[in-house]
């Protein structure tokens, strides 16, 4: 890591890979300066040295030079490959979701961000995260494209209707950082933002405790599953159930009618609920009705969380470390100045 606070007009960096992005940026500035200085110096030098001294002169003809051409094709090519490689490595770190993350759900909606923590807390246009923890955002939208962008973390990802996208980061510095929507989404696009509060773990726990919610997404999903949507009527009958077995499927391969196999990830579960006929599990009849139009994105997120939990994947590793003693604890005195 490096300190960039002395660089004028330079934005603060506050995620584990922010310095990598900055390093790449400085490398590119160096490369650009190198080429720009050479070209600009040559242009100016020629421009002055060879200025017209006599009207309609006929200077010597020079057709070109193959060695020179090869030289100035090869050098930029090599340099551009280093830029590619640097970019590829940083990109991989930014977009490859690591293991053991704390998962938070984000649903975009014209023009707000709705956030739900694994422990059930909800926030709007704010996101509280602990410092030094790997956080994964699983995101979707109820309407159009949006983009979840935190400049200080040097990362962003589009939020796409009809599917899940994800974003991860590990915040390195407690503080308050801007959150923007970076994909044009209509009327109030520029108002669709807020703050990300990075807090010390203890403060974060206090915050969670002070914002106690009634149900975690898993509990909420269970409620939908057994009571509200009646999934249990087919999926919870033990050996004789009509629906596919959901226990233990998450992250495993599922054999489909037609011989294909797919990995049961969040996206797959989501599709199984919205469009069951699209991917029918081998050995079952395609009798599951579609729930499209009957569940909101937030309910879907809860159902997915519940089904994941059936495989021992809680996605809710954010359980408070210091148990909330009583629901009326005073608001956390966190350093980040989170306003709540």
């Amino acid at each position: 890591m490096q300190d960039t606070s002395w660089v004028p007009l330079f934005p603060e960096g506050a995620s584990s890979f922010a310095w990598e992005v900055d390093a790449l940026y400085f490398y590119l500035i160096a490369v650009s300066a190198f080429f720009a200085i050479i070209v600009v110096a040559a242009v100016f030098y020629f421009f002055i040295k060879y200025r017209e001294r006599e009207k309609f002169a006929t200077p010597p003809e020079i057709h070109g030079s193959i060695p020179l051409e090869l030289f100035w094709s090869f050098v930029p090519f090599v340099i551009s490959m280093t830029i590619f490689l640097g970019g590829a490595i940083v990109y991989y770190n930014q977009y490859k979701i690591p293991e053991d993350t704390m998962e938070i759900f984000v649903v975009g909606k014209q023009w707000m961000w709705k956030v739900q923590h694994g422990t059930g807390q909800r926030e709007i246009n704010e996101l509280h995260v602990p410092v030094g923890r790997k956080v994964k955002l699983t995101m979707t939208t109820e309407d159009v494209l949006h983009d979840f962008y935190i400049p200080a973390f040097r990362t962003k990802a589009d939020v796409v209707p009809g599917r899940y996208t994800s974003l991860w980061f590990e915040a390195t510095k407690p503080g308050k950082y801007r959150l923007f929507c970076a994909e044009y989404c209509g009327l109030n696009h520029s108002g669709m933002g807020g703050w990300v509060y990075v807090m010390e773990q203890r403060d974060f726990d206090n915050w969670l405790a002070g914002n106690l919610s009634n149900q975690t997404p898993v509990q909420q999903g269970q409620d939908l599953f057994t009571n509200k949507l009646g999934c249990a009527s087919c999926h919870a009958g033990g050996q004789n159930q009509r629906g596919a077995i959901l226990e233990g499927i998450f992250g495993k391969e599922v054999k489909l009618v037609g011989g294909q196999t797919v990995i049961a990830d969040e996206e797959y579960i989501r599709n199984s609920i919205l469009n069951p006929a699209g991917q029918v599990v081998e050995g079952y009849q395609p009798i599951m009705p579609t729930f499209k139009g009957q569940v909101t994105e937030e309910q879907l997120v809860a159902l997915v969380a519940y089904i994941k939990s059936l495989s021992g994947q809680s996605g809710t590793t954010a359980a408070p470390m210091t148990p909330a003693t009583d629901g009326t604890t005073a608001a956390p005195a966190n350093t980040a100045g989170a306003g709540k």
């Binding site: 990598e20 790449l24 830029i83 590619f84 970019g87 990109y91 770190n93 400049p151 040097r154």
Partner: peptide, 9 residues
């Protein structure tokens, strides 16, 4: 902008 890691930002 072509260097992926940077363009994400």
């Amino acid at each position: 902008l072509g260097s992926v890691g940077l363009t994400v930002h």
